[in-house]
Nucleic acid binder design. Structure first.
Lengths: 208, 208
DNA sequence: TAGATTGTTAATCGATTAACAATC
DNA sequence: TAGATTGTTAATCGATTAACAATC
């Protein structure tokens, strides 16, 4: 089976965004050299990336159909499925994610938040109910939950993740700035401000 | 000069976090095999990573001093410097970042926000003033600003970044889910929800 | 001394880039 | 046909892993 590296997977949303802009402009086909000029990837890499997910070849001299590429990418990225997610930790960052408008078009349905702060429990944020952490298992018994988005402080992250895993959630999107461990059948993606900032600051002070 | 790959730079904050936990527990030295067990990297990689930034060797049978490692890492990562940043776009995400408590210890001083929404301009968030976008140049004339954190909607990102660059800001931390272009002397780091989510979803539905 | 751990050098692996014939 | 672009195969590059002598 084809395998996809992390870097490669990270590029696909950029392609999709660009192709949607082309579609809006009424452009029907796009070639690798043109994509290369805009997105700054090499044209060979673009060809490989698009070959890996397309089920029909590109046409010499034309390139590929923008509509088909969008269709293929949205399917590949799971934007056509509905993945359900809960936010664990409804502080500022968790609340921002409860309000984030782009998850829906990415096929991610954020169905509610969990927190232990009594002044939050029972309220709604962006129409989504905030429940007590102890209610997570009740929700997962009634409804499939695919992803737990972890936005608790670093010191509480491992415990929150353990509870999510106990409740049968298989995907963890960890925003807490700390290393955590999960069983090997659980998929975890760390989305780490401090790692991203480390790259930025180093490049900034180091002249690349 | 030594070069550091993106992956390598992204690992350093995890080391630092872990070493600080050790320090809190009163542990004085740490070896690569032990780090490997906790963080899940290979011990060879850990040795290379720590060698690359340390100015004295590790001691056979002991490892390295936790205090010294923390000192070295904090200096290397720029946590001892003060990097100044402004938030451009003070919607939910921008406000969450204005309230994010961890930037300070990373050496990042968020000094204010910019937005064009008249109901936000003139207010304070977490003690930080929100100004009109047209005032950015006034601020940068008076004060060094190193980083612009871009939390505007995707369609407004390029314009916001162009303005930040015109104002002499050299570092761009882009949270908007879109590709943007910057002059070659500007450092940009994309922190992209859709890319991170793409990795998570693919691993989740693909059995790794 | 023995053993754990180090740093260095070589081997492997995987991703990106280059070369080029095929094709519309 | 000529030229742009494709897909494939080979070469390069860089990062990770393995091997192993050195050392406290």
């Amino acid at each position: 089976m084809k395998t996809f590296s992390k870097n490669q997977l990270e590029r696909y949303p950029f392609y999709l965004k660009y192709f949607k802009e082309l579609q809006k402009k009424g452009i029907a086909t796009i070639s690798s050299p043109k994509i290369a000029r805009v997105l700054g990837y090499s044209e060979e890499q673009i060809r490989k990336d698009l070959q890996a997910i397309s089920n029909e070849p590109g046409r010499p001299k034309k390139g590929r159909s923008v509509d088909k590429l969008i269709d293929t990418l949205e399917t590949f990225l799971g934007y056509r499925d509905s993945t359900t997610a809960v936010i664990i930790g409804c502080g500022h960052l968790g609340q921002a994610l409860l309000n984030y408008p782009n998850f829906k078009e990415m096929g991610l349905a954020v169905i509610g938040g969990f927190d232990n702060n009594p002044s939050l429990v029972g309220t709604n944020i962006n129409g989504k109910p905030i429940r007590s952490m102890s209610d997570l298992s009740h929700l997962t018994e009634k409804q499939k939950v695919d992803v737990a988005i972890i936005t608790v402080p670093a010191h509480a992250a491992q415990e929150a993740i353990d509870e999510a895993v106990r409740c049968g959630i298989h995907g963890i999107w960890n925003f807490a700035p700390t290393h955590v461990t999960v069983p090997c059948n659980i998929v975890i993606e760390n989305f780490n401000f401090s790692s991203s900032l480390a790259v930025l600051i180093h490049r900034l002070y180091d002249g690349r």
